[in-house]
Design a protein around this nucleic acid. Sequence first.
DNA 1: TTGAAAGCGCTAACAT
DNA 2: ATGTTAGCGCTTTCAA
Lengths: 339, 339
Amino acid sequence: MRKARRVTSIDVAEAAGVSQSTVSRALSGCDTITEATRARVVEAARALDYRVNEHAARLRRGSTGTVAVIVIGRAGAAPGAINPFHYKLLGAVCAEASARGLDALVSFQCDPAQFYHDHIESGQADGIILIGTTVNEPAWAFHEPLLKRTNIASWASPFELNGEIRSDNSRAAHLATSRLMAAGHRAILFVGPTKGDQPQFGERYRGYVAAMEQAGLGHTAIEPPADADRGTQGRLAVEQLLAQDTPFDGLFFACDALALGGLDALSAAGRAVPEEVGVVGFDGVDSGQHSNPPLTTIEPDFAEAARQLVERALASDPPAFQTRVPVMLVERASVRQPR
Amino acid sequence: MRKARRVTSIDVAEAAGVSQSTVSRALSGCDTITEATRARVVEAARALDYRVNEHAARLRRGSTGTVAVIVIGRAGAAPGAINPFHYKLLGAVCAEASARGLDALVSFQCDPAQFYHDHIESGQADGIILIGTTVNEPAWAFHEPLLKRTNIASWASPFELNGEIRSDNSRAAHLATSRLMAAGHRAILFVGPTKGDQPQFGERYRGYVAAMEQAGLGHTAIEPPADADRGTQGRLAVEQLLAQDTPFDGLFFACDALALGGLDALSAAGRAVPEEVGVVGFDGVDSGQHSNPPLTTIEPDFAEAARQLVERALASDPPAFQTRVPVMLVERASVRQPR
DNA sequence: TTGAAAGCGCTAACAT
DNA sequence: ATGTTAGCGCTTTCAA
C-alpha cells in the first residue's frame, strides 16, 4: 500500500513483452491487433493493477470526454436550498452523461467568488451545461457571454436565445387548464410572475391565456410579491387573492414551489382542495407527492431534457433555434375527477 | 471563433518577452518573481485569452485537485428517484469541495454497467466520496473493497467500518423521543427496519430503546415490509399498526420518507396529527415542509457532514474511528407544543 | 530572478 | 500487426 511509483504503460509493455504503443492499442480497443497480443497485454495490465492515466491520455488526445455542469443557486444560499427540480435535472444530466461514457464535472455556483466557466479553455470539458435558478442575476450576468457560443447548453436561462432548452410551456399550460376545465372549473386563475425573472413563467402565462380565450373564458393573473422564496410567494399570493374576494375555482401555478405554498394558504383558509378549488402545479417535485392534498402537476420529460442538454453541449455548430421538451400531466389529487 | 490552435504558455511567453517557465511561475503565484515581470505576463495572458491546460498541469504535477463523488441509487431507478436527502448531501459536498478549490467529479451509479471507482488509479481524483442508498447491494458489494483503503470517505455505508461518517444517531433518537415525551406522549413506537439494510436505522432504533428505558417506558418497533420504496413502507407499516390495535400516541420514524408515507396512512385513517399522535422523522427533506401536517424531524449538519467527507477523502492516513455528525431537531408541526 | 532542459504518461503518425 | 518516434502543455529541477 505504500507510495509505490505509479505503474505506467511502459511497465505493462515490459511485463507483456511488447512495445508501449502496443499496450496503448490493446487497451483502447484498437482493432488492428491480434487477439493473442491483446490478451497478453490485458493480463499483464491486470496483474500490475494498471489504469490508463486520464490526464496523459486526454492531454495527448486533445479531447476531454467530460461535460461540465454548472448549477446556479440563489446568492448566499446553502446547497440544501436549491430547488429540488434542479437536483432532478442534475441527476438526469449526470445519468445521460454517464450513458454516453462522459464524465460530469459538477460545480454549484451561488456567489461571485464561485463563478467560473473556463472549463473548455482549460481543457477540462468539451461542453458546458448551465442549469439552476433564474433569479441569481449576477450569476447569469457572468455567464451570459458564454451563451452565445457553441458547446454550451442551458436550461431556462433568463435570456431569450437560440439554443435555449426549456419545457414546452405553451402545451403545458393547455394541459393544465384543460384538466381544470374537465373537472368543471371555469374561473381559473394563473398564479405566478408573468414576466421578469423567469421567461418560462411568461410562456406558461401566455399559454394559459390562449387556452382560456380559446375556451371563451376570462383570464386573470395573480402576481406574487417579489423578494421571497417561491413557497412564501405562493402563500402570499393566495392570501392576497382570498382577501380580495375575486371568485375562483381553479388555480394554475407557475411552478410547484409556488403551488405548495398556495396549498398551505388554501388549507389554512379552510378552502377544500380539490372540492372547492382545483390546483395544478408545474415541475413534478417530490414534495407534491405528500402535500395536502398531493399536487397534480405538469412535468417535463427529464431524460429527454438531459439528452438535449448533453447533445447541445457537445455539438460543435451553433444551435439554430430554441428547443421545447415534451411535458406530461402527473395526476395526483389536487384536481377532482372529470365530471 | 474558428478552430484556432490552442494558445499555450509558449505563446504567452513570446508575447511577454520572457521564457515559458517564467509564464508558468508568474501565473501559478510563485513568489520568486518580480512584480513587473508578473504584470507583463498576466497582461499578455489576458490579451491572448490564455488558460492553463489543466491536464498538462496535473499530469506534470501528479496531483489532481479533484474529488470524485459517487452517488449510489436504487438499481434500475431513474435519477429522479434518488432520495432528496442524498441530493442535499451531494450539494453540500460540491459546495465544500468548491470552497477548498477542488473540482467535483460526480457520477450516479445505479446499475452494474455504471459501477466504476478507478478515479484515483487513473489520476482523475485525489479522493473518493461515496454516498447514496444502502439498499443497492450489488453496488456496495462492488465498492466495498475500496472502503478499507485510504482517500475514501463514505456516508452511511451498509458496513461497519473505521472511517465511516454518519449522523449521531444515538443522540438523534434521544432528541426525537424527548420531544415526543415533552408533548406528553408515552406510548411511543419506532417505525422502521431495526436491522438489515441500513445500519443507521439500527442505531436510531437502539437509541430509541435506550431513551425509552431511561424514561422507564416500554418500547416497540414496527418493522415495515421489505421490498417497497420507503414511502410505501411507511404507509404499509402504519396501516398494519392501525389494524392490530396496539395503543400508541407517538411515532418515531427511521427516516422522513417513511414518515411521509406514515402521515398519509394516519390521515387516511382519520388519526389527527399532532393532536392524537405525535410524529417525528429523520433527514430534513424538503417534502416535510408541505406535508400534512409539516413534519417535525431531525437533520444532520449537512455542511459539517460535507466537511468531514471531503477531509477524509483527502486524508492520506487511514481513519482510526467512525465519526458522528451533529444533529438538530427541526420543529415543524407534527408534534404538539410541550405541555 | 530568470532561462534551459527534462519529463509527467500517453496517443497517433509513420515506419516496417 | 507491431515498433519507433514525436510530441500534447505544463511544472520543476538545475544552472546561470
